[in-house]
């Protein structure tokens, strides 16, 4: 418990900053919707004039963004990206930072097993991503409600947040696995950032070119379709299942690798 609370305490400031950033992005995104809606322009026909590729890159391939739900679903890509970066960084840093901060000799010479250090650290990670998720939920419902006659689409946003949480768990585990297996925090966070960027661009590539369709299984960003979540309110249980299994595998790997690790001073 001592390690768990220490991690919560060590991370609450950065969690608040991340949460504020998320609220700001949701606020800014939905402000743009207000701009569109107030201008009275038919956005769909306006965007119809844009090249498809451009729309796809911004996640607006085939969505009716004249409706608030459609608009939100487009922006969800960015909320998801921010949540993914937060989770993967948390995982990578929390596992490896004792060595970065030269406190590993102190911590691991206490009467604790390696897994008794990793578990509370990962639990603190789950609490952090859950908080981030709830902030995203609250801000989303609030700002959607603001432009949708008070209807925050609570049900649909809630389902979207379940999907987001599964993704966050996946990225937390991915980060933790990288933190346990790579030599330093710096290498782990760089690798994590590289994977996020790579899989994000892969998801764009899959949207752009049907030939890449098979590759969609390789990018977690394609596991949930924001349109289906926010507009239809349906969650792909297959995706949830696959992601949770992969998360479990990554977490197990994290424990196994960290258990065998030679700690650096």
């Amino acid at each position: 418990m001592n390690i768990f609370f220490k991690e919560l305490k060590a991370n609450y400031k950065s969690l608040l900053i991340w949460s504020c950033a998320q609220v700001f992005i949701i606020f800014a995104g939905m402000m743009k919707y207000k701009g569109f809606a107030d201008s009275g322009v038919d956005i769909n026909s306006l965007f119809a004039g844009f090249p498809k590729e451009l729309l796809v890159v911004f996640g607006m391939g085939s969505t009716d963004i004249s409706q608030v739900a459609g608009f939100y679903s487009v922006f969800f890509l960015y909320f998801m990206l921010l949540a993914a970066v937060h989770a993967v960084m948390f995982g990578a840093v929390v596992v490896s930072k004792e060595e970065r901060d030269h406190s590993a000799d102190f911590l691991f010479s206490r009467p604790v097993k390696r897994h008794e250090v990793i578990t509370p650290k990962l639990l603190a990670g789950v609490v952090n991503i859950l908080f981030f998720n709830l902030v995203t939920f609250g801000a989303s419902v609030f700002f959607i409600g603001l432009y949708n006659n008070g209807d925050g689409l609570v049900d649909k946003v809630a389902i979207t947040m379940v999907a987001l949480f599964v993704l966050q768990l996946f990225f937390l585990a991915l980060g933790a696995m990288l933190g346990a297996s790579l030599k330093t925090t710096k290498i782990a966070t760089s690798a994590a950032a590289g994977i996020i960027l790579g899989t994000f661009f892969l998801s764009v590539a899959v949207d752009l070119n049907a030939n890449f369709d098979i590759l969609k299984y390789l990018t977690p960003f394609k596991y949930f379709n924001a349109k289906m979540l926010v507009i239809d309110g349906t969650l792909s249980l297959n995706s949830v299942g696959i992601l949770l299994v992969v998360t479990f595998i990554l977490t197990t790997l994290c424990y196994l690798i960290f258990n065998k690790r030679d700690l650096s001073t």
Binding site: H102, S103, D105, F106, K113
Partner: peptide, 20 residues
């Protein structure tokens, strides 16, 4: 028996860095 043993060990590392 690392955990058990370390209950009774006091260790001063050569490079002392703690939580700054």
């Amino acid at each position: 028996y690392g955990k058990e043993i370390r209950k009774d060990i006091g260790y001063l590392p050569s490079e002392v860095f703690y939580y700054e």
